[in-house]
């Protein structure tokens, strides 16, 4: 028995029929086409499905789609505007904060959240490490990712 829910994804209103058991990650990927939302563990451990929902970073593979009815959602696809990368994305490129790239969407969304949330204050490397602890990267060893977040945060603070 399907149910129609409404999501605002990257600024666009979407209506979609979902089953009560369907996960938000699957609906975003398979029904709405946001393939940047990845799954690496299927149970909320790896953070690859991280999106920003109503302003909070969440793991979309452990949220039922029906729970998200009416939510405002940002995925990695919504960050770049007309080919211009967000400061976080740009910092990841410059610092080589990625290798195989499969975890990158999850890290970018977690990083966006960290940078926005702390836009008005200093953040320490230790805070960035903790804030990224929910997402797994097997390639980079995290250092260049942490550097990317710190650089993006610095840049955003300068702009403001």
């Amino acid at each position: 028995m399907g149910q129609v829910i409404t999501l605002k994804v990257n600024g666009v209103l979407r209506e979609v029929e979902v089953e009560p058991y369907e996960l938000l990650a699957d609906v975003l990927r398979d029904k709405l086409g946001y393939k940047g939302v990845k799954k690496g563990c299927w149970r909320g451990e790896c953070g690859l499905c991280t999106i920003i929902m109503n302003g909070e970073a969440v793991k979309s593979c452990i949220i039922l789609a029906v729970e998200a009815d009416g939510a405002e959602i940002e995925t990695v696809e919504g960050l770049a505007r007309n080919g211009r990368l967000s400061p976080v994305q740009d910092a990841y490129v410059k610092n080589a904060g990625l290798q195989c790239g499969f975890c990158t969407p999850g890290f970018i969304m977690a990083s966006e959240y960290i940078v926005r949330r702390n836009a008005n204050r200093e953040i320490t490397p230790g805070e960035v490490r903790s804030a990224l602890s929910g997402t797994i990267c097997r390639c980079t060893g995290y250092k260049q990712i942490i550097d990317s977040v710190l650089e993006a945060h610095r840049r955003i603070k300068i702009v403001r």
Binding site: E77, L79, Q89, K94, N95, L98, G101
Partner: peptide, 19 residues
Amino acid sequence: IPPKDAFDKVTGTGTYVYD
């Protein structure tokens, strides 16, 4: 020099078989 495929990867637009 940053990896050449970085743009695809930070925008989530690179395609894997999974996708």
